[in-house]
């Protein structure tokens, strides 16, 4: 209820007093009940060299977006890693998180605040909001990858020479009710980055920009062009169904949303081995 009261205060404040600062305050955590859990530590980073991302919906005259060198975590964040985060940051526990930052599906597969499902070290955490994913990354001293970075890594050839789009189609064809598989059951690309396809969907920093501009909460014209036949207008690759599926997924989300098949991984500009 705390955040609701705060919202009311802002509304009242706008009318009667000088506006409040614009930053979104994270509610003050209750006296820390820091829990002792094993932290598996951050995921190993893999350097991704400078590359190009060809957007599904390029702007006029645009063919590719340059992607600067960065580093991406080799696998998605696991339940065990996320447990370490919520243990240290009680405000991100399921019972405490403000509904502004996570909907009711947040960590729905956890039995309690600090009780992730079995095989926590081997399974990707899902049912996390974008706000929570971003907070986790910040806590690790990293950030979420941008859409262009994520897609640039995802379009690298697979280590086994396979077809990534086909891997995505095969993945969706399996019923999802059993929950995500273990890390490493998806694809692996030539750099050794695993599970970009075939395990879970992943948050990206600018997911709301999937349609070039605007955000996911508005019904801008650009967003509408996602639907039906109009979805193919202006698309550089109308036959890349897997890319359409990712884009549709991102466009359907709000930052507080969570779904059973949506996880994340972190990125950083601090490239391992670089000086």
């Amino acid at each position: 209820m705390r955040h609701t009261a705060w919202l009311c205060a802002v509304v009242v404040g706008c009318g009667a007093e000088p506006p409040q600062p614009a930053s979104i305050p994270i509610p003050t955590p209750a006296p820390a009940e820091s829990a002792q859990v094993d932290d598996p530590g951050p995921t190993i980073l893999v350097a991704v060299p400078a590359s190009e991302y060809r957007p599904l919906f390029p702007s006029k005259g645009q063919t590719a977006v340059a992607v600067a060198p960065f580093a991406l975590e080799r696998t998605p964040v696991t339940h065990a890693q996320f447990l370490a985060f919520v243990a240290a940051m009680p405000e991100w526990r399921r019972s405490r998180v403000p509904s502004l930052f996570a909907d009711s599906g947040y960590l729905a597969d956890w039995a309690e605040d600090l009780s992730p499902p079995p095989d926590a070290t081997e399974r990707p955490v899902t049912a996390v909001s974008w706000f929570a994913a971003r907070a986790y990354a910040r806590w690790r001293g990293r950030r979420l990858p941008t859409l262009a970075e994520w897609e640039a890594a995802a379009q690298l050839p697979l280590a086994d020479g396979g077809n990534a789009a086909r891997a995505v189609l095969a993945w969706y064809a399996k019923p999802a009710s059993s929950g995500p598989q273990r890390l490493g059951t998806g694809t692996r690309n030539v750099l050794g980055i695993a599970d970009l396809h075939g395990l879970v969907w992943e948050w990206v920093l600018d997911f709301g920009g999937a349609m070039v501009t605007g955000d996911a909460r508005s019904d801008s014209d650009l967003q509408r062009s996602l639907f039906c036949g109009a979805g193919a207008v202006g698309s550089a690759r109308p036959d890349d169904y897997a890319a359409f599926m990712r884009m549709a997924m991102r466009s359907s989300l709000h930052g507080r949303n969570s779904t059973k098949t949506l996880g994340f991984r972190c990125a950083t500009d601090q490239i391992p081995g670089a000086r």
């Binding site: 599906g105 639907f227 039906c228 359907s252 949303n257 059973k260």
Partner: peptide, 10 residues
Amino acid sequence: AAASFVAPGH
């Protein structure tokens, strides 16, 4: 279409 667009669990 736009008005009814929803992610899983919503």
